[in-house]
């Protein structure tokens, strides 16, 4: 946020910072990313470690929420089976806009080693993904980095989500 040196004597003693609405809104959004408490497989263990005290997501303003209605980020952590894909998509639909998706780990990215009939070959087949995080499983530092990259992405976006070229083609 662009802060300007203010001469307090000439501005009636008011501390003033000038910025744009986009930057202000995105500053708020990017620093309070609330992911959904939603684990699919072993990547979820790393996700839980990222949220716990040692790696501590809370210091980045990232607090796991137990309800999709209160969450902005969906971290798809693990293998998504075809049976479960319907419910993952329903949780995504229940999240309020604006919302982002992190695909965590090889299985979520491409199906990974589960080259089978029963595994979704990449979660981008059912939800639009913002960040693809490689690894099997990615370490908590990597997930933190992915979240920081997502923050960076959000700060570049327009606060008006309609103006963003988000790949919502697959939304119904």
């Amino acid at each position: 946020m662009a802060q300007h040196q203010v001469n307090y004597a000439s501005s009636a003693g008011l501390p003033i910072a000038l910025t744009s609405v986009d930057k202000l809104v995105n500053w708020g959004r990017s620093n309070s990313l609330w992911p959904l408490t939603y684990g699919l497989a072993c990547c979820a263990i790393e996700m839980m470690a990222s949220g716990a005290s040692r790696y501590d997501f809370d210091r980045m303003g990232t607090i796991f929420r137990a309800s999709p209605r209160q969450a902005d980020v969906m971290i798809l952590a693990g293998t998504l089976s075809k049976k479960h894909s319907e419910f993952a998509r329903r949780l995504y639909d229940q999240m309020t806009e604006p919302k982002w998706v992190i695909s965590m780990g090889s299985c979520a990215n491409t199906g990974g080693m589960f080259n089978t009939y029963a595994t979704v070959q990449g979660v981008d087949r059912i939800v639009p993904v913002d960040i693809y995080l490689p690894g099997c499983a990615p370490r908590p530092e990597t997930l933190q980095y992915a979240l920081m990259m997502l923050q960076k992405k959000i700060r570049k976006e327009s606060a008006d989500m309609k103006k963003n070229k988000k790949q919502n083609l697959r939304l119904v």
Binding site: K82, S85, S106, T110, M113, N115, G122, I126, R170, V172
Partner: peptide, 28 residues
Amino acid sequence: DEFASWYEVDKIFGKEYRNIIGPENRDP
């Protein structure tokens, strides 16, 4: 297997979305 490979697309979006999403790539 056609049913298995399009299961999640058919179930969530409907068969008309097969063209948009495309066939699944089983080679990572």
